[in-house]
């Protein structure tokens, strides 16, 4: 069966004043339709570079990205991206933010507003349609960004540490919301994260990346029952998965930390 998203031998080297830096080294990932896959790794392992490549925001790379078997390059409407940083448009209300991609595509106002309303309901923001992002919390703003990304019913939902700026409780609740959306839409999702519990809570598979150059070090299948919620976190099996991932990640995170300290000492 053709994977919904196939990343084949993707590599990326950045030229810096200190010389070339190999950020990614022949990364290959296949994701089945409806699957939730997380990529976890230490800072500097090339997670975000990988996301930018799949999202079409970086053109200059080695390897190939296939969507339903077809080679793609550059931004695709079929690949929706939720960014780590706050990305709602502050001059637009919640509903106008969600309707943005449909407006850009030239959909009539009535149709796009109706769809935007549905999506706001999906992310639990009905009643906040006419609020500006500045009037909403960080978690609510990120839910708007998710709803906006889902507007075109993308084949692949890419999320780059979407909860990184949020507090732990909001992060857990938003994780539940993402699980619910993924379940309702059977949404194929690739999540980039550095949070182990989040990766276990949400994913069918967790891919652990090595420190620079980023490679897939290990793949862990998460065999936890669905539908899931953050209540899973108290379970023994959940703890075992977290421990197993940390076992692999610890060495890579130490390398990352040493590198950071070396750079600081050099500076």
């Amino acid at each position: 069966m053709t994977p919904a998203l196939s990343i084949q031998n993707v590599a990326k080297t950045f030229s810096t004043a200190q010389g070339d830096v190999r950020a990614l080294d022949h990364v290959s990932i296949d994701i089945r339709a409806g699957e939730f896959v997380s990529v976890i790794g230490p800072s500097g392992c090339g997670k975000s570079t990988l996301m930018n490549i799949v999202g079409g925001l970086v053109d200059d790379y080695e390897g190939e990205v296939h969507l339903d078997g077809a080679l793609v390059r550059g931004c695709q409407k079929q690949i929706g991206v939720v960014f780590q940083e706050e990305s709602t448009f502050p001059w637009r209300t919640a509903i106008d933010n969600v309707a943005f991609p449909m407006e850009a595509a030239g959909l009539p106002r009535e149709a796009r507003m109706a769809r935007a309303r549905e999506l706001l309901e999906l992310v639990g923001l009905n009643g906040f349609e006419n609020r500006f992002p500045s009037e909403l919390s960080g978690g609510m703003r990120q839910r708007i960004a998710i709803a906006r990304t889902l507007a075109f019913q993308p084949r692949i939902l890419l999320m780059d540490e979407p909860f990184a700026a949020l507090d732990e409780q909001t992060r857990l609740l938003l994780g539940d919301k993402v699980l619910q959306i993924q379940q309702e839409l059977n949404q194929t999702t690739l999540l980039i994260t550095h949070n182990i519990a989040e990766a276990v809570q949400l994913s069918d598979r967790v891919l652990i990346m090595s420190f620079r150059p980023g490679r897939i070090k290990r793949v862990i299948d998460i065999d936890l029952p669905r539908p899931r919620s953050s209540k899973l976190m108290g379970g023994e099996k959940f703890g075992q998965y977290v421990a197993a991932i940390w076992e692999d990640l610890r060495e890579e995170a130490s390398k990352g930390l040493q590198d950071m300290e070396r750079v600081r000492a050099g500076a």
């Binding site: 079409g56 925001l57 929706g80 990305s87 448009f89 001059w91 850009a104 595509a105 906006r148």
Partner: peptide
Amino acid sequence: PVLLNVGRTYGLTPWRQFRMIQFPA
């Protein structure tokens, strides 16, 4: 830059990128 990247992911032309994102921002 993240706002411009949002526009890029929706395939906006440079003019629409300016009109719909850069100028209002």
